[in-house]
């Protein structure tokens, strides 16, 4: 299946939710995580949206209790998403159509990470 490669970043405590094996792939030396990730591209009728990408992250990258990242069809409140430097809420949020080489950043604003 055709795949799309995106850059994922997890910072400000969001990195604590990600499986340890991805730390080795990270290009950052600090606690932050940054690595390339491949996700199955959608079809012409159903292109890959942020919603599917986040579900892919939950299934493949998030360790432990998945509810800490995604619950009831929504990203956990308090986790911000930045797509190519802009708040995802100005970019259609979960409906945003993911493009190759997008840089997608997850920031936790929760107290204590």
């Amino acid at each position: 299946m055709h795949k799309v490669s995106v850059t994922l970043k997890f910072v400000s405590g969001a990195e604590l939710l990600i499986k340890d094996e991805f730390r080795a792939q990270s290009s950052k030396k600090s606690g932050d995580l940054e690595f390339k990730h491949e996700v199955p591209a959608g079809t012409e009728n159903a292109p890959l949206r942020m919603k599917e990408l986040i579900e892919n992250v939950r299934d493949n990258l998030v360790k432990g209790d998945k509810d800490q990242f995604y619950k009831d069809g929504k990203l956990r409140p308090g986790i911000l998403v930045i797509i190519n430097g802009s708040d995802w809420e100005v970019e259609d949020g979960p409906e945003y159509k993911v493009q190759a080489d997008d840089v997608i950043e997850f920031i936790s604003t929760l107290h204590g990470g």
Partner: peptide, 8 residues
Amino acid sequence: VVPTFTTS
């Protein structure tokens, strides 16, 4: 990230 007792 400043940890607390309930981090993660």
